[in-house]
């Protein structure tokens, strides 16, 4: 295309998700503020949160997530696998996953994955972007409730078992909704501005009340509980990023 004759199409994308599944320095998933490890479960990369970025990941720093902590998680997982025994896979364990898949495959609902996802993306962009207010976040809480309700009525065309990418997209949408919920509720809860979380109604950083990690727990659709974990500061004080 010729930029002299027509405008260059530009669109923003989310290129990194801060926060994630909390892990130890060895990639072991932890489940609470006391750093209780979930044995045998590991997370690394953008999905994980070793917490090396503070409240705003700086450029190229996610390489650390990948190269350093990916390697450490791999080493530790290999060590764990050497001594661990196989668990028996019972119907009880399989049931929930199987039911998740079967429900989507057998559903005759009218909702479509792509349309629902587009609505989720648009509303998250509008209401829960970097600059946010309590009002908008509250609005998004309601929107998410509605979307989660509609998600129960999605159906798919592909009923097959081989490379069912439509089923994968449908499952992923469910996870996207849950992650969105954790994000929006936590953002609404945190009444300060810090790093990439800029509350226009609370523009100042508040170390007295909020120098702590949020751990979000799903109670039920639309209801999230919080716990908090202290920040390990070490050598660096939290400071405003100025240029």
């Amino acid at each position: 295309m010729d930029p002299l004759k027509e405008p260059v199409p530009v669109m923003p994308t989310a290129h990194y998700a801060m926060g994630g599944i909390p892990t130890t320095l060895w990639g072991q998933v932890i489940k609470d503020e006391k750093n209780t490890v979930v044995p045998g479960l590991y997370a690394a990369g953008e999905a994980a949160c070793v917490s090396l970025h503070g409240a705003n990941r700086l450029g190229t720093n996610s390489l650390g997530d990948l190269v350093v902590f990916g390697r450490r998680a791999g080493i530790h997982a290999a060590r764990f696998a050497r001594d661990a025994d196989y668990h028996e896979l019972t119907e009880e364990h399989l049931g929930e996953s199987r039911e998740r898949i079967e429900r989507i495959k057998n559903s005759t609902g009218k909702e479509k994955v792509a349309a629902l996802r587009a609505e989720l993306q648009q509303s998250m962009m509008d209401n829960a972007s970097v600059f946010r207010t309590g009002e908008l976040l509250q609005k998004q809480v309601e929107i998410l409730k509605e979307l989660m309700d509609r998600y129960k009525r999605i159906s798919i065309d592909d009923k097959g078992d081989a490379y069912n990418t439509e089923l994968v997209e449908a499952l992923e949408l469910g996870y996207l909704l849950e992650v969105s919920e954790a994000l929006v509720h936590s953002a609404l809860n945190r009444t300060e501005s810090r790093g990439a979380h800029a509350r226009e109604d609370y523009p100042e950083r508040d170390d007295e009340n909020w120098l702590k990690h949020t751990l979000a727990y799903k109670v039920e659709d639309g209801k999230v509980a919080f716990r908090y974990k202290p920040v390990v500061l070490g050598r660096f004080e939290p400071k405003a990023r100025t240029y």
Partner: peptide, 11 residues
Amino acid sequence: VKWYQDGSLAF
């Protein structure tokens, strides 16, 4: 095609 016409298309 995949999202609005035929979801079974795989690529």
